[in-house]
Amino acid sequence: MARYAMVIDLERCTGCRACVEACKVENNTPTANLWMYVFRFEEGEYPNTHVWFMPRPCMHCDNAPCVKVCPVGARYKRLDGLTATDWERCIGCRYCEVACPYGVNYFNWKDPAENYYLDWNDEDLAAVTGGTTPPYRNPDLDQPYGSEQRRVAGGGRAKGVIEKCTFCVHRVEQGLLPACVANCPLFALHFGDLDDPNSTVSRLLRRKPSFRLLEEQGTQPRVYYIGGKPPTTETRQIEEVKARV
């Protein structure tokens, strides 16, 4: 069984947010749900300022608080390390959203059909797309995945359920990289199997010092950062995006 992890190279990231968009389109997430988020940080005082950027997907923690508190077992940890959300079983209690220290959970307050940016109910458009919402709806997300065959892929599945980054489970199971990793123009995101000593992630972690976010909380995240230092209380966010409706 693979042991998946992500390595993010902060020396390369330019904060372009292409990963945010790639994730959005691939996973069909509704308005203001930013599964992948990129922080744009500024530190210091003029003229000794430092500007840097930090992508933040779900950490897919090995000691996940969200998994522990899910009353119905909709949020569970797979053997390959992905922390998945069974959107058929989720009852929308939002305990996982409360428990997660990273804030990666998004609740579908609205009916997804009405929450995809624009009103797609256009006759002329439906003639081209067959009336799907959104028009770029990805059919891969409807299938069940994993040996347990549960529906864990995609966003905007139903009103009243929680969703979050899935490490693109529907792509990973086909041997592809998550959309954010595959697209990063600066090749700052890496994904792979930690149990394989020759994988990119293993080699990077052997060679370079790394950190994980909020390690002191004991969540054992599977997302490692190289080429930088964790944000401190002096780090300010600039150019924030209003996530969540």
């Binding site: 998994v67 522990k68 053997l79």
Partner: peptide, 9 residues
């Protein structure tokens, strides 16, 4: 922990 699944209840 013996496997990632130890996160699960």
């Amino acid at each position: 922990p013996s496997s990632p699944a130890y996160s699960n209840p």
